[in-house]
C-alpha cells in the first residue's frame, strides 16, 4: 500500500480514503443500522398478519396496528446510515463546481454548526422525556394498545446518538484530509505513521477491492 498516499488526498474522493478512527465509527453505525433495516421486512409480515386477521377472521386488535409503527419508527436509525453513505439530499448545483478542499471545509463547518448542535440539544431534551415515560409506565392511548411506550420513545435519543457518531466520523475524516492535503509528503506521513496515537488518524487510499 506504500507509495499511493502523498498528495493524492487533495483531489481524491472521500469515499476512496480510509481513516482508521472514522472507519471504526462508521462501522458502529453500519453494523447497527444494516441490522435494523430488516425491521421493514418485519413490518411487512405484521401487515400480512393484520390483513389476514381482519379480512379472514373479522378481528383486529389495536396493538397489532401499533406494532407496525413501532417497527417502522426504526427509520430514524437510517438517518445516520445515510450520513455515512452520503445520500442525504444536497442541492449540488454550485457545490460540485467547488474544489475538494472547499467542499471539505463546508462539511466540517456544517457538521459542527448544523448537525451537532441539533443532535445534542434534542438528545438532551429527549432523555427526560423517555425517563418520564418509563416512570409513568406510559401506555398506549388506545384501550387495547401496547404498553411500555418508553421503548419506542427511546429510539429517538438512540438514533440521535447514531447520527452524532456518523457525523463525528465524517468530521474526523474531512479534518484529516484537509490537514494531509496541505502538508503531506511521503516522509511526514511515514514518520507520523509510527506515532502510536496519530496512527489511528492516518489516511490511506483504499484498495480498489475495498471500495
Amino acid at each position: 500500500m506504500s507509495g499511493n498516499h502523498s498528495n493524492h488526498f487533495a483531489e481524491c474522493d472521500n469515499k476512496d480514503v480510509r481513516v482508521p478512527v472514522s472507519s471504526f465509527l462508521t462501522s458502529i453505525v453500519t453494523t447497527i443500522t444494516t441490522k435494523t433495516a430488516w425491521f421493514n421486512v418485519v413490518v411487512m409480515l405484521i401487515i400480512l398478519i393484520q390483513v389476514t386477521l381482519r379480512y379472514g377472521f373479522n378481528s383486529g386488535e389495536a396493538w397489532v396496528d401499533e406494532l407496525i409503527w413501532h417497527f417502522y419508527a426504526f427509520f430514524m436509525f437510517g438517518l445516520s446510515y445515510a450520513i455515512t453513505s452520503d445520500s442525504h439530499i444536497r442541492v449540488d448545483i454550485m457545490h460540485m463546481r467547488l474544489s475538494k478542499r472547499k467542499q471539505r471545509i463546508i462539511e466540517v463547518l456544517g457538521i459542527l454548526f448544523l448537525i451537532m448542535p441539533f443532535t445534542i440539544i434534542v438528545f438532551d431534551h429527549s432523555i427526560g422525556w423517555v425517563h418520564h415515560s418509563f416512570m409513568a409506565n406510559e401506555f398506549s392511548e388506545n384501550t387495547t394498545g401496547l404498553p411500555y411506550r418508553w421503548i419506542v420513545k427511546s429510539l429517538l435519543p438512540a438514533s440521535l446518538i447514531l447520527i452524532f457518531i456518523a457525523s463525528l466520523s465524517e468530521l474526523i475524516k474531512n479534518v484529516v484530509l484537509l490537514i494531509y492535503s496541505n502538508t503531506s509528503t511521503d516522509k511526514t506521513l511515514d514518520s507520523k505513521k509510527n506515532n502510536s496515537l496519530l496512527r489511528f488518524f492516518y489516511p490511506v487510499i483504499k484498495n480498489p477491492k475495498e471500495t
Binding site: L79, I89, V91, G110, L114, F118
Partner: peptide
C-alpha cells in the same frame, strides 16, 4: 444561502432552526 453550499438540505433545515 446555506442549501447552495451543498450541505444536505435536511441538516440545513434542522441546523438553521436551532441556530
Amino acid at each position: 444561502a446555506l442549501i447552495f453550499t451543498g450541505f444536505p438540505v435536511a441538516w440545513v433545515l434542522a441546523g438553521v432552526g436551532i441556530l
